[in-house]
Design a protein around this nucleic acid. Sequence first.
DNA 1: CTCTTTGCAAACGATTTGCAAAAAT
DNA 2: ATTTTTGCAAATCGTTTGCAAAGAG
Lengths: 165, 165
Amino acid sequence: MVASNHTAHPVSDEAAQSTASDSPLNLACARLKSAGLRITQPRIAILGALIARGQPTSIENLHADLKDGACDLVTVYRCLAAFEQIGLVKRSFYHNGTALYAINLGASNAYHVICKETNQVTAIDADTTAQLRAAVESVEQVLKERGYTEVTHVVEFFAVAPKTR
Amino acid sequence: MVASNHTAHPVSDEAAQSTASDSPLNLACARLKSAGLRITQPRIAILGALIARGQPTSIENLHADLKDGACDLVTVYRCLAAFEQIGLVKRSFYHNGTALYAINLGASNAYHVICKETNQVTAIDADTTAQLRAAVESVEQVLKERGYTEVTHVVEFFAVAPKTR
DNA sequence: CTCTTTGCAAACGATTTGCAAAAAT
DNA sequence: ATTTTTGCAAATCGTTTGCAAAGAG
């Protein structure tokens, strides 16, 4: 799907455009800058696609989201690796091991169910995962106390979604 | 390319231990049988290696554990895929996406931390993960109530392990 | 101007597949 | 005897790397 019909920042609009300086894209760019990474055209495009998607997405799909030859597939790989290193994106996986990336701007990091058949990604509501989130953070805390550093986690639910079958 | 972490595990003496009929290996074979899968030499060897390891292990390492040319690497792939399908093994991943498999005989399924640098797999004690386990099961329950089937999950902690030298 | 980032091509490792022989029931 | 499973070789897929050109600060 090559959706070339979307502008810079689509989603998340409730209080009109207001000050664009705290748009997700700008926040993301600020993170790049403070990490000493350069703000380039490909990176802006990739971040835009990541934000527009708003959920874990494969590199292949992200690349397809970019218009025409906005940037090379290899660049998407390299950028996402760099973004992950500074914590700008969070990585997870399809059931088959293919990497998925989701923007990580602090807020609203939902957990997801991924369909084993179609790879469709669906967010699980916060109420359902509140306890889980707390438990995961608690375990991470314990690990840090035990000397582990750069602690991260992957929590993924896989299932066959209701419609199919 | 990394970590051949051997946690000395004597399992070859199944005959000497009380009733051998409920040894892990026999339980595993029973699962194969009731799933309509044939019990073959390669499968017994792979299950033995899986049980001996007792924790998530890569296919490469499992294959290396088998004596000489006990069976082909491709067979290990195929068997583990079959085992996973009947729930005999549980799959997880290294931080780089490489698949890991652990035997799943119902009891004592610990959660693990995997070192981002060395891929060393370490179990996290049950006390620390009790709450997490409960939360995960609760989420799975909700998903089932919502019509998802064959619900499984992957919960993995990644970190740089404390240096021990 | 200097250092980072990109594109392209080619390398790579992990996993999968086709097919005939071997093994299990 | 019938059906599954295996081994081998080759293919495929996602991902990584080398290097020179292009772009950012």
